[in-house]
Protein backbone atom coordinates (compact mmCIF):
# COMPACT_ATOMS: atom_id res chain seq x y z
CA UNK A 1 0.00 0.00 0.00
CA UNK A 2 2.90 2.27 0.83
CA UNK A 3 4.38 1.85 -2.62
CA UNK A 4 1.07 2.75 -4.23
CA UNK A 5 0.82 5.92 -2.20
CA UNK A 6 4.32 6.88 -3.27
CA UNK A 7 3.39 6.47 -6.89
CA UNK A 8 0.13 8.38 -6.58
CA UNK A 9 1.76 11.37 -4.94
CA UNK A 10 4.70 11.67 -7.28
CA UNK A 11 4.60 14.49 -9.84
CA UNK A 12 6.29 12.21 -12.33
CA UNK A 13 3.16 10.09 -12.55
CA UNK A 14 1.08 13.04 -13.65
CA UNK A 15 3.74 14.38 -15.99
CA UNK A 16 3.80 10.97 -17.65
CA UNK A 17 0.02 10.91 -17.60
CA UNK A 18 -0.14 14.14 -19.58
CA UNK A 19 2.45 12.84 -22.01
CA UNK A 20 0.50 9.64 -22.57
CA UNK A 21 -2.79 11.52 -22.87
CA UNK A 22 -1.65 13.88 -25.62
CA UNK A 23 -1.64 11.52 -28.63
CA UNK A 24 -5.00 10.12 -27.64
CA UNK A 25 -6.34 13.60 -27.03
CA UNK A 26 -5.25 14.82 -30.46
CA UNK A 27 -6.75 11.83 -32.23
CA UNK A 28 -9.95 12.12 -30.21
CA UNK A 29 -10.17 15.80 -31.10
CA UNK A 30 -9.98 14.86 -34.77
CA UNK A 31 -12.53 12.12 -34.32
CA UNK A 32 -14.85 14.56 -32.60
CA UNK A 33 -14.71 16.90 -35.59
CA UNK A 34 -15.40 14.02 -37.99
CA UNK A 35 -18.23 12.61 -35.88
CA UNK A 36 -19.89 15.97 -35.44
CA UNK A 37 -19.99 16.05 -39.22
CA UNK A 38 -21.58 12.59 -39.28
CA UNK A 39 -18.60 10.39 -40.10
CA UNK A 40 -17.37 7.63 -37.82
CA UNK A 41 -13.69 7.43 -38.57
CA UNK A 42 -12.63 3.98 -37.43
CA UNK A 43 -9.49 4.42 -39.51
CA UNK A 44 -8.14 6.59 -36.71
CA UNK A 45 -5.70 3.91 -35.61
CA UNK A 46 -4.26 3.66 -39.09
CA UNK A 47 -3.97 7.42 -39.37
CA UNK A 48 -2.07 7.58 -36.08
CA UNK A 49 0.26 4.85 -37.24
CA UNK A 50 0.86 6.64 -40.53
CA UNK A 51 1.65 9.77 -38.52
CA UNK A 52 4.06 7.94 -36.22
CA UNK A 53 5.88 6.46 -39.20
CA UNK A 54 5.91 9.71 -41.16
CA UNK A 55 7.26 11.59 -38.17
CA UNK A 56 10.29 9.34 -37.90
CA UNK A 57 10.75 9.24 -41.67
CA UNK A 58 10.65 13.03 -42.02
CA UNK A 59 12.92 13.61 -39.08
CA UNK A 60 15.36 11.01 -40.44
CA UNK A 61 15.39 12.42 -43.97
CA UNK A 62 15.48 16.12 -43.14
CA UNK A 63 17.11 15.98 -39.76
CA UNK A 64 14.49 18.28 -38.30
CA UNK A 65 11.66 17.07 -36.03
CA UNK A 66 9.33 19.83 -37.30
CA UNK A 67 9.70 18.52 -40.85
CA UNK A 68 8.96 15.13 -39.32
CA UNK A 69 5.72 16.57 -37.97
CA UNK A 70 4.79 17.81 -41.43
CA UNK A 71 5.64 14.47 -43.07
CA UNK A 72 3.62 12.55 -40.50
CA UNK A 73 0.60 14.81 -40.84
CA UNK A 74 0.74 14.64 -44.63
CA UNK A 75 0.85 10.82 -44.61
CA UNK A 76 -2.09 10.65 -42.21
CA UNK A 77 -4.06 13.10 -44.33
CA UNK A 78 -3.48 10.89 -47.36
CA UNK A 79 -5.00 8.00 -45.44
CA UNK A 80 -7.89 10.26 -44.41
CA UNK A 81 -8.41 11.23 -48.04
CA UNK A 82 -8.88 7.58 -48.95
CA UNK A 83 -11.37 7.23 -46.12
CA UNK A 84 -13.25 10.32 -47.30
CA UNK A 85 -13.18 9.25 -50.92
CA UNK A 86 -14.70 5.86 -50.16
CA UNK A 87 -16.97 6.66 -47.22
CA UNK A 88 -18.08 10.21 -48.10
CA UNK A 89 -17.97 10.59 -51.86
CA UNK A 90 -18.78 7.01 -52.78
CA UNK A 91 -21.04 6.50 -49.73
CA UNK A 92 -19.29 3.29 -48.75
CA UNK A 93 -19.66 1.78 -45.32
CA UNK A 94 -17.68 3.96 -42.92
CA UNK A 95 -16.76 1.24 -40.47
CA UNK A 96 -15.68 -1.32 -43.03
CA UNK A 97 -13.59 1.33 -44.80
CA UNK A 98 -11.94 2.30 -41.52
CA UNK A 99 -11.09 -1.26 -40.55
CA UNK A 100 -9.67 -1.96 -44.00
CA UNK A 101 -7.51 1.15 -43.76
CA UNK A 102 -6.20 0.17 -40.34
CA UNK A 103 -5.03 -3.16 -41.64
CA UNK A 104 -3.60 -1.68 -44.83
CA UNK A 105 -1.63 1.01 -42.96
CA UNK A 106 -0.23 -1.53 -40.51
CA UNK A 107 1.15 -3.52 -43.44
CA UNK A 108 2.25 -0.50 -45.45
CA UNK A 109 4.23 1.16 -42.64
CA UNK A 110 6.01 -2.07 -41.66
CA UNK A 111 6.86 -2.66 -45.30
CA UNK A 112 8.15 0.87 -45.82
CA UNK A 113 10.19 0.77 -42.63
CA UNK A 114 12.00 -2.28 -44.02
CA UNK A 115 12.44 -0.57 -47.38
CA UNK A 116 13.88 2.66 -46.01
CA UNK A 117 16.03 1.16 -43.29
CA UNK A 118 17.77 -2.12 -44.07
CA UNK A 119 16.50 -5.03 -42.03
CA UNK A 120 14.03 -2.67 -40.40
CA UNK A 121 16.58 -1.36 -37.94
CA UNK A 122 14.99 1.99 -37.41
CA UNK A 123 17.56 4.44 -36.06
CA UNK A 124 17.06 6.98 -33.33
CA UNK A 125 16.06 10.32 -34.85
CA UNK A 126 15.71 13.92 -33.72
CA UNK A 127 12.65 14.29 -31.50
CA UNK A 128 11.11 16.80 -29.17
CA UNK A 129 12.82 17.22 -25.85
CA UNK A 130 10.90 18.68 -22.97
CA UNK A 131 10.88 22.44 -23.07
CA UNK A 132 10.25 24.24 -19.82
CA UNK A 133 7.99 27.25 -20.16
CA UNK A 134 10.01 30.09 -18.68
CA UNK A 135 8.60 31.26 -15.38
CA UNK A 136 5.63 28.91 -15.26
CA UNK A 137 7.72 25.77 -14.97
CA UNK A 138 9.09 26.89 -11.65
CA UNK A 139 5.63 27.12 -10.11
CA UNK A 140 5.57 24.94 -7.04
CA UNK A 141 3.77 21.63 -7.39
CA UNK A 142 2.34 21.74 -10.87
CA UNK A 143 5.10 23.72 -12.58
CA UNK A 144 7.20 20.75 -13.53
CA UNK A 145 4.25 18.53 -14.27
CA UNK A 146 2.35 20.81 -16.62
CA UNK A 147 4.94 23.22 -17.99
CA UNK A 148 7.93 20.96 -18.40
CA UNK A 149 6.64 19.08 -21.43
CA UNK A 150 7.60 18.75 -25.08
CA UNK A 151 6.51 21.44 -27.52
CA UNK A 152 3.79 19.21 -29.01
CA UNK A 153 1.97 19.13 -25.68
CA UNK A 154 1.44 22.87 -25.77
CA UNK A 155 0.47 22.66 -29.43
CA UNK A 156 -2.15 20.03 -28.55
CA UNK A 157 -3.62 22.23 -25.83
CA UNK A 158 -3.80 25.19 -28.20
CA UNK A 159 -5.44 23.09 -30.91
CA UNK A 160 -8.02 21.88 -28.42
CA UNK A 161 -8.99 25.44 -27.54
CA UNK A 162 -9.12 26.53 -31.16
CA UNK A 163 -11.32 23.62 -32.25
CA UNK A 164 -13.67 24.09 -29.33
CA UNK A 165 -14.15 27.67 -30.45
CA UNK A 166 -14.55 26.72 -34.11
CA UNK A 167 -17.13 24.02 -33.38
CA UNK A 168 -19.28 26.00 -30.99
CA UNK A 169 -18.84 29.60 -32.05
CA UNK A 170 -18.38 29.82 -35.79
CA UNK A 171 -20.62 29.41 -38.83
CA UNK A 172 -18.35 26.66 -40.10
CA UNK A 173 -18.88 24.72 -36.89
CA UNK A 174 -22.62 25.26 -37.03
CA UNK A 175 -22.76 24.06 -40.63
CA UNK A 176 -20.67 21.00 -39.76
CA UNK A 177 -22.96 20.10 -36.88
CA UNK A 178 -25.95 20.48 -39.18
CA UNK A 179 -24.34 17.97 -41.56
CA UNK A 180 -23.94 15.50 -38.71
CA UNK A 181 -27.47 15.93 -37.42
CA UNK A 182 -29.58 16.21 -40.53
CA UNK A 183 -27.66 16.26 -43.81
CA UNK A 184 -30.81 16.48 -45.89
CA UNK A 185 -31.97 19.64 -44.16
CA UNK A 186 -28.44 21.00 -44.36
CA UNK A 187 -28.32 20.29 -48.07
CA UNK A 188 -31.64 22.03 -48.56
CA UNK A 189 -30.12 25.10 -46.94
CA UNK A 190 -27.33 25.14 -49.46
CA UNK A 191 -24.66 23.61 -47.24
CA UNK A 192 -22.36 21.39 -49.29
CA UNK A 193 -22.60 18.30 -47.12
CA UNK A 194 -20.04 16.24 -49.04
CA UNK A 195 -17.50 19.07 -48.97
CA UNK A 196 -18.04 19.66 -45.26
CA UNK A 197 -17.55 16.00 -44.48
CA UNK A 198 -14.41 15.89 -46.59
CA UNK A 199 -13.01 18.83 -44.67
CA UNK A 200 -13.89 17.23 -41.34
CA UNK A 201 -12.30 13.94 -42.34
CA UNK A 202 -9.09 15.61 -43.48
CA UNK A 203 -8.90 17.64 -40.27
CA UNK A 204 -9.42 14.41 -38.38
CA UNK A 205 -6.60 12.81 -40.34
CA UNK A 206 -4.25 15.70 -39.65
CA UNK A 207 -4.94 15.61 -35.92
CA UNK A 208 -4.64 11.85 -35.71
CA UNK A 209 -1.39 12.12 -37.65
CA UNK A 210 -0.12 14.71 -35.23
CA UNK A 211 -1.05 12.41 -32.37
CA UNK A 212 0.89 9.65 -34.12
CA UNK A 213 3.94 11.87 -34.54
CA UNK A 214 3.82 12.52 -30.84
CA UNK A 215 3.97 8.80 -30.10
CA UNK A 216 7.18 8.41 -32.08
CA UNK A 217 8.88 11.79 -31.75
CA UNK A 218 7.57 12.87 -28.37
CA UNK A 219 8.91 10.00 -26.42
CA UNK A 220 11.10 7.30 -27.88
CA UNK A 221 12.39 8.95 -31.08
CA UNK A 222 12.06 5.87 -33.23
CA UNK A 223 9.48 3.75 -35.04
CA UNK A 224 8.42 0.19 -34.45
CA UNK A 225 5.74 -1.89 -36.19
CA UNK A 226 2.21 -1.16 -35.03
CA UNK A 227 3.49 1.31 -32.45
CA UNK A 228 0.17 3.17 -32.23
CA UNK A 229 -0.84 0.15 -30.16
CA UNK A 230 -4.61 0.61 -30.16
CA UNK A 231 -4.54 4.28 -29.14
CA UNK A 232 -6.77 5.06 -32.10
CA UNK A 233 -9.43 2.84 -30.63
CA UNK A 234 -8.98 4.40 -27.22
CA UNK A 235 -9.52 7.78 -28.87
CA UNK A 236 -12.77 6.50 -30.38
CA UNK A 237 -13.84 5.44 -26.91
CA UNK A 238 -12.81 8.76 -25.41
CA UNK A 239 -15.05 10.68 -27.81
CA UNK A 240 -17.94 8.65 -26.46
CA UNK A 241 -16.86 9.14 -22.84
CA UNK A 242 -16.64 12.89 -23.53
CA UNK A 243 -20.09 12.65 -25.04
CA UNK A 244 -19.13 14.51 -28.18
CA UNK A 245 -18.23 17.64 -26.26
CA UNK A 246 -14.84 19.21 -27.00
CA UNK A 247 -14.43 20.48 -23.43
CA UNK A 248 -15.04 17.04 -21.94
CA UNK A 249 -12.24 15.58 -24.03
CA UNK A 250 -9.55 16.99 -21.75
CA UNK A 251 -10.53 15.19 -18.55
CA UNK A 252 -11.41 12.04 -20.48
CA UNK A 253 -8.02 11.91 -22.18
CA UNK A 254 -6.19 12.78 -18.96
CA UNK A 255 -7.98 10.04 -17.11
CA UNK A 256 -6.78 7.57 -19.67
CA UNK A 257 -3.24 9.00 -19.61
CA UNK A 258 -2.94 8.79 -15.84
CA UNK A 259 -4.36 5.27 -15.80
CA UNK A 260 -1.81 4.16 -18.34
CA UNK A 261 1.04 5.87 -16.49
CA UNK A 262 -0.10 4.22 -13.28
CA UNK A 263 -0.24 0.84 -14.96
CA UNK A 264 3.29 1.26 -16.31
CA UNK A 265 4.63 2.25 -12.93
CA UNK A 266 2.78 -0.51 -11.15
CA UNK A 267 4.54 -3.01 -13.38
CA UNK A 268 8.04 -1.81 -12.55
CA UNK A 269 7.55 -1.23 -8.87
CA UNK A 270 6.52 -3.83 -6.40
CA UNK A 271 3.12 -2.25 -5.87
CA UNK A 272 0.56 -4.99 -5.88
CA UNK A 273 -1.78 -3.45 -8.44
CA UNK A 274 -3.77 -5.27 -11.09
CA UNK A 275 -2.53 -2.96 -13.83
CA UNK A 276 -4.50 -4.83 -16.52
CA UNK A 277 -7.65 -3.50 -14.93
CA UNK A 278 -6.37 0.04 -15.17
CA UNK A 279 -5.73 -0.42 -18.86
CA UNK A 280 -9.27 -1.67 -19.31
CA UNK A 281 -10.75 1.40 -17.65
CA UNK A 282 -11.40 3.46 -20.82
CA UNK A 283 -13.38 0.60 -22.30
CA UNK A 284 -15.31 -0.02 -19.12
CA UNK A 285 -16.18 3.66 -19.03
CA UNK A 286 -17.27 3.56 -22.67
CA UNK A 287 -19.66 0.73 -21.87
CA UNK A 288 -20.93 2.65 -18.88
CA UNK A 289 -21.59 5.73 -20.99
CA UNK A 290 -23.35 3.71 -23.66
CA UNK A 291 -25.42 1.99 -21.01
CA UNK A 292 -26.54 5.42 -19.87
CA UNK A 293 -24.87 5.22 -16.45
CA UNK A 294 -22.94 8.46 -16.87
CA UNK A 295 -25.67 10.72 -18.14
CA UNK A 296 -27.09 10.53 -21.57
CA UNK A 297 -26.18 12.56 -24.57
CA UNK A 298 -27.13 11.29 -27.94
CA UNK A 299 -24.55 11.01 -30.68
CA UNK A 300 -25.06 13.16 -33.78
CA UNK A 301 -28.26 11.91 -35.37
CA UNK A 302 -26.80 11.11 -38.77
CA UNK A 303 -23.60 9.58 -37.38
CA UNK A 304 -22.32 6.75 -39.52
CA UNK A 305 -24.83 7.27 -42.29
CA UNK A 306 -23.48 8.22 -45.70
CA UNK A 307 -25.32 11.05 -47.38
CA UNK A 308 -26.62 10.49 -50.87
CA UNK A 309 -28.52 13.25 -52.56
CA UNK A 310 -31.83 12.17 -53.95
Amino acid sequence: MHALLDILTSGALYAAGIRLAVPVFLAALGELVAERGGLVNVGLEGMMLAGAFGGVLGSYLFDDPWLGVITGVVLAVVVAAIQAGVAVSLAGDQIVTGIALNIAVLGATSFMARTVWTDGNVPQVEGFDPWAVPGLSSLPGIGDVVFGQGALVYLAAALGAVLWWVLTRTDWGLRLRACGEDPRAADSLGIRVIAMRWQATLICGALAGLGGVFISLGDIFTFSDGMSGGRGFIALAIVIIARWSPSHLVPAALLFGVCEALALRAQVTSADLPYELLLALPYVLTLAVYAGLVGRTLPPAALGRPYVRR
Binding site: D171, R177, A178, D182, A185, L189, L298
Partner: peptide
Protein backbone atom coordinates in the same frame (compact mmCIF):
# COMPACT_ATOMS: atom_id res chain seq x y z
CA UNK B 1 -40.03 21.67 -42.26
CA UNK B 2 -36.41 21.29 -43.25
CA UNK B 3 -34.93 22.20 -39.91
CA UNK B 4 -32.18 20.55 -37.94
CA UNK B 5 -33.96 19.18 -34.89
CA UNK B 6 -31.03 19.01 -32.48
CA UNK B 7 -30.02 22.60 -33.09
CA UNK B 8 -31.68 25.57 -31.45
CA UNK B 9 -34.13 27.96 -33.02
CA UNK B 10 -31.42 30.64 -33.29
CA UNK B 11 -28.94 28.21 -34.85
CA UNK B 12 -31.48 27.14 -37.43
CA UNK B 13 -32.18 30.73 -38.34
CA UNK B 14 -28.46 31.34 -38.71
CA UNK B 15 -28.06 28.23 -40.86
CA UNK B 16 -30.68 29.65 -43.18
CA UNK B 17 -28.53 32.73 -43.61
CA UNK B 18 -30.39 35.04 -41.24
CA UNK B 19 -28.32 37.71 -39.54
CA UNK B 20 -24.57 38.19 -39.70
CA UNK B 21 -23.33 35.52 -37.31
Amino acid sequence: PLLVGRLTVAENLRLGGVGDG
